[in-house]
């Protein structure tokens, strides 16, 4: 398995675990009809930190084990795979962001009934998290595309 493929696996697994926990916590808040913006922001920052530390640490260990230079430039095949994955994920991200924008009106109506105490604040939290969700989703898909390409080449 190439170093880049290991990077992609680390990114997928780390993202699924860390951000899976984040969105699970958010979904619990939605189900209980109680969204604490401050707590969610703190959790978001913690998840960002954990993701950063885990990915850096795992990639450093993988580079050390493979006796490869950390941050070595990509070769032409890796660049081609990355360009393909990026093209797909950027296209999808744009499409999903339009979906989020289109869903805002419906979400605003829903927030007035689901969160009568603070519909505006809840709407802001939900829209922000919808944007985070589609960003995380497309990033995971980008890494999965990397893995699929590298598996096909193996």
């Amino acid at each position: 398995m190439s170093f880049r493929e290991k990077n992609a696996w680390f990114a997928v697994l780390t993202t699924l675990v860390v951000w899976g926990f984040y969105f699970w916590t958010l979904s619990v808040g939605i189900a209980e009809r109680h969204l604490d913006g401050g707590a969610l922001l703190t959790l978001f920052l913690v998840c960002m930190g954990i993701t950063l530390v885990l990915l850096l640490g795992l990639n450093l260990v993988a580079a050390r084990l493979a006796r490869q230079q950390f941050g070595a430039p990509e070769d032409e095949l890796e660049r081609a795979v990355d360009a393909r994955a990026l093209r797909f994920s950027h296209g999808l991200l744009g499409f999903l962001l339009l979906g989020v924008a289109a869903g805002c009106a419906w979400l605003a109506d829903w927030c007035t009934t689901a969160f009568p105490d603070d519909p505006t604040g809840s709407l802001a939290i939900l829209v922000a998290n919808a944007i985070i969700f589609v960003s995380v989703l497309t990033e995971v898909l980008r890494e999965i595309i990397h893995i699929v390409h590298y598996r096909r080449m193996a």
Binding site: S2, F3, D75, E76, L77, E78, M153, A154
Partner: peptide
């Protein structure tokens, strides 16, 4: 040639066409 072993393997097994420079 400044590539990874995996890329050389992909070229050798005809799974990837290298650039003219490569």
């Amino acid at each position: 040639i400044g590539m990874t072993r995996q890329t050389v393997a992909a070229i050798e097994h005809n799974k990837y066409s290298p650039s003219l420079e490569a």
